[in-house]
């Protein structure tokens, strides 16, 4: 879904003016992010309702590895910094800087996802499957959804790097970087909430 919003890149603003003076694509992106608040809100609420309901299998406190997750959370947080540097470079028409920072952001994101895969595997080995308990189902659904969002973001970042190298991007390059940046930061702020509510505050 997000790709649809992001990549409808060119009509309306290119060589035309809009009523508000704002880019169509950017308004669309912010609307999409506003909508995503309710998506993640629903998943977070489901988790908050079910976090303590463990009919069988391990409880949250038994499977969470706070030091490990803290490091991967920190990595994702710092990827927001590199993303904003990429946007800044793109706005200065610095293609080399843009591709560099985009690549770094994608790598940091990939590290985060890799950490999540490792974490899921470890939890599964400790007996927490998707179907084990309400806690398991809601935990994997929430963090899984987030992980998918990060993965989609990584794919978009890498595609963007490729496209900038080939220089065939429709529309304004800096704007596309900015839009994907908005998406990326949003995924990051969702993790800020998840990290606190899911990991740091015990059930």
């Amino acid at each position: 879904m997000s790709d649809v919003a992001v990549h409808e890149a060119d009509h309306g603003t290119h060589g035309h003016t809009t009523t508000t003076g704002l880019s169509n694509n950017k308004v669309a992106m912010w609307l999409f992010l506003g909508s995503e608040c309710l998506l993640f809100g629903g998943l977070i609420s489901t988790y908050m309702l079910y976090r303590g309901r463990v009919s069988e299998g391990p409880r949250p406190g038994n499977v969470f590895d706070i030091p490990f997750t803290s490091v991967s959370s920190f990595i994702l947080l710092m990827s927001s910094l590199t993303m904003v540097l990429a946007v800044s470079a793109a706005q200065n028409r610095d293609d080399r800087g843009t591709t560099l920072w985009l690549t770094v952001t994608a790598l940091l994101g990939a590290t985060f996802v890799g950490g999540q895969v490792y974490e899921f595997t470890a939890m599964y080995n400790e007996g927490l499957g998707f179907t084990t308990s309400l806690f398991g189902s809601s935990f994997y659904a929430l963090t899984g959804f987030h992980g998918v969002h990060v993965t989609v973001g990584i794919i978009m970042l890498m595609s963007l790097v490729g496209i900038i190298k080939r220089s065939t991007i429709p529309g304004d390059k800096a704007e596309v970087v900015e839009l994907i940046g908005l998406y990326w930061h949003f995924v990051d702020v969702i993790w800020i909430i998840i990290f606190t509510l899911v990991y740091l505050i015990p059930a």
């Binding site: 629903g42 009919s55 809601s138 659904a141």
Partner: peptide, 28 residues
Amino acid sequence: VPVITVALFLLSFQRNFGATFFDVSAGA
């Protein structure tokens, strides 16, 4: 729409992948 999307996902996960969201015997 995103709210019903969440609900539909939860139901799909339960029906197709065995999740427990609405399984009362698991405390749902």
